[in-house]
Amino acid sequence: MSTAEFSEKIAFIANDVRVLSFDEKKELPGEEEMNRLLDAVNESRKFIEAKTARTEQLTEALEAITWMTNPSEQDLSEINQLISSARDLRRTLLRTYLHLDHFSKQKNILLTEVQHLKRALDEFTETIDDVESVFFFLPKDKNFTEITDQLTNL
């Protein structure tokens, strides 16, 4: 490469740098804009964390129901309705989660928070199934109930 070609190349790169530098300065968000952006992210974080906390509370509440001893027919009917409502809620939460998961991966933000929501949702689903087992399936298993009877004699 001749000196003239070098000079031309340097001038070309220098121009590129000047253009890029100017563009970057133009596009640099102001403090106010950055604060708005951070506020929006924080609001989204709070939104997801609130959903996660609420789901975890519901899971614990469902678990607590399994400590009800000798439920009446009326109790069982209400528990059955509760299970149906919980499954409906689960479907809605799953849709919310899928939407948030897509958004967070696309923007690469709030990944941990969305993962926590997924974990809470998995536990909620598991607990709904457990509650159904406790009140409607295990009591029909004669082998299972016989063991409880034998333990009662301990």
Binding site: T66, W67, T69, N70, D130, V134, T148, T152, L154
Partner: peptide, 16 residues
């Protein structure tokens, strides 16, 4: 946690 066996005296428990 989840009590599986309807027993106050001998709870069979699943804990997450």
């Amino acid at each position: 946690g989840t009590r599986l066996n309807n027993s106050d005296k001998f709870p069979y428990i699943k804990k997450r």
